[in-house]
Design a binder for these strands. Structure first.
Lengths: 253, 253
DNA sequence: GTCGTCAAAATACTATACGAAATAGTATTT
DNA sequence: AAATACTATTTCGTATAGTATTTTGACGAC
């Protein structure tokens, strides 16, 4: 179906194809439509998305800076591989350096607008509980990403916000999750492991540990309790690390 | 196979023009050949560098991710403006979050290779003292950038290293310095101020405070004194901030 | 003189085709 | 079997044409 009219149907066409293409390719990487480590052929991609090479090239150049695409001179582009255990640990260590500080600052600077934003975000998390399990994963990860990002923004430090966003940590975690899921399809013995991965990290169903921890962070921030917010954030990230770490190890073995 | 004719005249031509172009444009921004906030015309740039639009577009897309170029849809690219005082402070605050930690980790992990690298870097700083004053600025900033980057690398945390490099802090500081210098040309009354800017921050001539502080950090790391390395780095960044801050304010008023 | 309107020029963006050069794979010769 | 030569594929860059959007600047109304 190399009919070029198709992409129009997929959504509201922004006037800049490069940006659209960027989002589309990002989505394709996120959903493993392009597998981790797979080669990315510009011509093929252009044909598939119904655009010319120019926007593809710009999108790939940006994705390379984002660390989602790797470029080898004269050999072309390919998606980056899944996080190694070391990269995974490094990432969480990095988050431990900046996010507790961001929470602390947020508690000092919080105002009515910030409180409203935090309220809205927590509300969206709770409504996500009503979704089916498969939709919950996506919804939870998106909430998690927005929540943490929101706090870095409330902290008011541009450098911190930017560096956090650039880690694309939730994107990488989602890729790990997807990889686990597809392993499941090949190997039924992994069944319990993959369920664990999801339940441990996002605690859907009865636990909802993530929501509880987020709630604690939010309360401390809104109460102006800077030290409390800091330690709450610290504990939350540490607990995420502890819960997710065995799964990451399993996948990389 | 026909013998390949190397174009010796043009230098070590990398076969990937995009990368070359990226470096060239970056250099042009750094040196204010393209002024902060100025528009970047793709056609003009392509003509000037003697390449076609394709590599220019890829380079600009990457520079946009780097935060050195801003893109407005359908209106084109332009260089980012100089750091505001807030951005300047945010940047240093961010560095205070990650670099002291990096120094601490480095002290724990340091080995013979790391020591040799630190030695070599400090040596290059001392030989830079023999250069003329105008060359010293460039040489010092480059040393400073390499020194701090080296420590993040020795710390072993990829996320920290990457996020530090992406701040391009030394590049931004150099742009501030250049802006001060060009103000000097227009306004002789600024003379003292600009000299201050340079001497305060890099302490060339007799002081060489930067080198002393770097030496202290290096010693602590090589001695395996993790707490000492941490506080030394903390003091160094704080002292940079204190010294440079009045200058940054002056430029942004 | 100020303001809005509208056509024309400039520029950004996309499409497409072509060619040079490098890589990778295959076949041939020594 | 190893080295070489050839072919195919792919990347990378160029050139050019066409469309869409912004900017400019002139003109006229108030």
């Amino acid at each position: 179906m190399p009919r070029k009219v198709q992409p129009v149907a997929t959504g509201p066409k922004r006037s800049v194809l490069s940006d659209e293409t960027y989002d589309m390719v990002k989505e394709m990487i996120l959903t493993h439509e392009i597998a981790p480590g797979a080669k990315v052929n510009i011509d093929a991609l252009a044909l598939k998305l119904g655009v010319s090479q120019t926007p593809i090239r710009e999108a790939l150049a940006r994705l390379e800076s984002d660390g989602l695409i790797a470029k080898e001179a004269l050999k072309g582009y390919s998606t980056t591989k899944l996080l190694t255990v070391k990269q995974f640990n490094d990432l969480f260590q990095f988050r431990l350096l900046i996010e507790p500080w961001a929470a602390e600052q947020s508690a000092k600077k919080i105002d009515a607008v910030g409180i409203a934003a935090l309220d809205a975000e927590m509300q969206s998390a709770k409504t996500a509980l009503k979704l089916s399990e498969s939709e919950q994963v996506q919804a939870f990860i998106e909430h998690d990403a927005r929540f943490h990002s929101l706090i870095t923004r409330i902290s008011g430090n541009e450098s911190v916000t930017e560096s956090f966003e650039r880690t694309h940590c939730h994107l990488h975690l989602f890729r790990l999750f997807l990889a686990a899921q597809s392993q499941l399809l090949d190997d039924k013995s992994k069944d319990k492991f993959v369920q664990d991965l999801f339940y441990r990290y996002y605690q859907t169903g009865s636990g909802q540990l993530t929501i509880k921890e987020h709630e604690a962070i939010k309360s401390a921030i809104c109460a102006g309790d800077d030290k409390g917010a800091k330690t709450a954030m610290q504990k939350h990230i540490q607990s995420s690390l502890d819960r997710f770490s065995p799964a990451a190890k399993e996948l990389n073995k």
